[in-house]
Design a protein around this nucleic acid. Structure first.
Lengths: 177, 177
DNA sequence: ACCTGAACACCGTTCAAGT
DNA sequence: ACCTGAACACCGTTCAAGT
């Protein structure tokens, strides 16, 4: 029943790579809401080609974050909660608007089953595991920690790393027994 | 040297009121980034009239919030820090995107000297006064509390009142001596 | 199998012309 | 003194036509 995976045409491979590179530049400069026309132009490709490769902005962002997420999750093994929260906040600063995107997916997981949704599910699982290994007050829920993680990521975006780190440290103190 | 204030023409007064009403509807429904064309249409007025009355989106938002801010600041007298933070978070939920607007102004005050900037300055002053009256650890700064206030406002927008209230309560516990 | 770019529907902002 | 709406420059998204 499954369609055999065929080798993509050489120009398709090249265009996809050029689109990702141009999108990374544009998102880094203007945030995750940057102009897609500009991305296509930057990649030297027609706008229709961008939509062929990435039907939605979300798909493009998800593809760009895939490697970063793999790297982030790979080094999360055995790390303590404070460090994990700082890393996620730092990660969310990759593109302006990313904190909101991740927060909304963590809060209401996307049913579409795309790459970004899968990554957010992995992020939620790691957070839950890390919370389990931490020593916290009995009335603190995993949701409370996810809320702090999202808030710290947004604070990192708006006000920088120091403000985010201080929020994490102070709130975790309030969560300790 | 000062220009005498003249009575505005009757149609101007009416149009201004219609624009504010239409903008409140649009911003409540679609957030503070809602279409200004739609606002003008909703007010039964040409787009140029909107720009005449409110040269920037910020001016329109500032005019809409003026009354709300007056009410909020009026009842802030003598209130404790936890309550003040909950009120600001609740207020920021008026329009989607408002938390970010206020946070950026508190962090980097607008020099333009418009109504919104003045209101944010008042908000900062009340926060400082309320922090002064609270019993907090010596290493907690006013900036830390402003960070929490902004984060709670954004959390209120994204995840609702319960998540925001729990973040405030937990973080304040971490700030207490 | 993939790419192009015109087409459509929108939006923000300005400004000459009206009354 | 104020209002109108055309004009301009942009953007997202689709889809027929090409190779």
């Amino acid at each position: 029943m499954s369609t055999p995976t065929r080798r993509p045409r050489a120009d398709a491979t090249r265009n996809r790579a050029a689109l990702l590179a141009a999108a990374d530049d544009a998102f880094a400069a203007d945030g995750a809401g940057a102009s897609l026309s500009a991305v296509a132009a930057g990649a030297g490709v027609a706008i229709g080609t961008l939509y062929k490769h990435f039907p939605t902005r979300r798909a493009l962002v998800g593809a760009l974050l895939a490697e970063r997420h793999d790297a982030l999750f790979a080094r999360a093994e055995g790390v303590d909660l404070a460090t994990w929260l700082r890393w996620v906040a730092e990660h969310a600063a990759t593109y302006r608007g990313l904190a909101e995107l991740i927060a909304s997916d963590l809060h209401a997981p996307d049913e579409a089953g795309d790459r970004l949704a899968a990554d957010c599910a992995r992020m939620a699982a790691i957070t839950e595991r890390t919370v389990g290994a931490a020593d916290l007050r009995a009335d603190v829920t995993v949701d409370d920690v996810v809320t702090l993680m999202n808030a710290a990521a947004w604070t990192r975006e708006q006000q920088g790393a120091e403000a985010a780190d201080r929020l994490i440290a102070t709130t975790l103190r309030g969560m300790s027994p």
